[in-house]
Design a protein around this nucleic acid. Sequence first.
DNA 1: CCACGAGTTGCATACATCTTCAACTCGTGG
DNA 2: CCACGAGTTGAAGATGTATGCAACTCGTGG
Lengths: 109, 109
Amino acid sequence: MGVPLYQAKAEFFKTLGHPARIRILELLCERDHAVHELLDQIAVEPSSLSQQLAVLRRTSMVVSRREGGEVLYSVSAPEVRDLLLAARRILTELIHVYDESATPAPAST
Amino acid sequence: MGVPLYQAKAEFFKTLGHPARIRILELLCERDHAVHELLDQIAVEPSSLSQQLAVLRRTSMVVSRREGGEVLYSVSAPEVRDLLLAARRILTELIHVYDESATPAPAST
DNA sequence: CCACGAGTTGCATACATCTTCAACTCGTGG
DNA sequence: CCACGAGTTGAAGATGTATGCAACTCGTGG
């Protein structure tokens, strides 16, 4: 274990720190998608999408396979789905905290 | 809801995408810490630590209070603990996937 | 009132990431 | 064999993020 765990965690979260990559993962959680299908859903250039897919491939969060004239992507493990669900849940909770601290306390006390 | 959810998620993960910030959160999950205590544990310059604390404050993940001659930090909500635990669990799972895919398939085909 | 320790803030530099264009690879079909 | 559509890769410019130094704020104690 050369890399300290907290650094691995940071790298991992960094991978998730991009809107397009989040969208890709969410779409792939529903079902496998061909690249051109993702392209229809996510407004980015083909090359840019490909770059983000490469990032996700490098971290083993997704895998690709060629099928006919197209390349299909899918999430590499069910844990990825779990992760996104957990994130959604926790983010919702934190948004509450966020609101509270941003709100000048309406009429509390 | 001006900001799309997937972008909020990305921002959120980006906040976690830094080793020092991960360490800070982990330490604060154990108990509240004064800045100089964090400084002892996390090898960074005082100013750098302060910057990271500012990032975490901005996203409402931690809060600070002055007490005597020092400033104490704590996690803003228990969900933060949940999040780090979830992350650890899921990261462990993914590391397995990682290992498998990194292994050149011993004697396949 | 002054000196200090504890933290913070403001930059300037260095570094990493994102975006886009163009060139290139690979199968498929004519 | 050539033309094409689907994806990928490489490189350059634009942005964003991190780091370290110096200057500054704030309470505390002498």
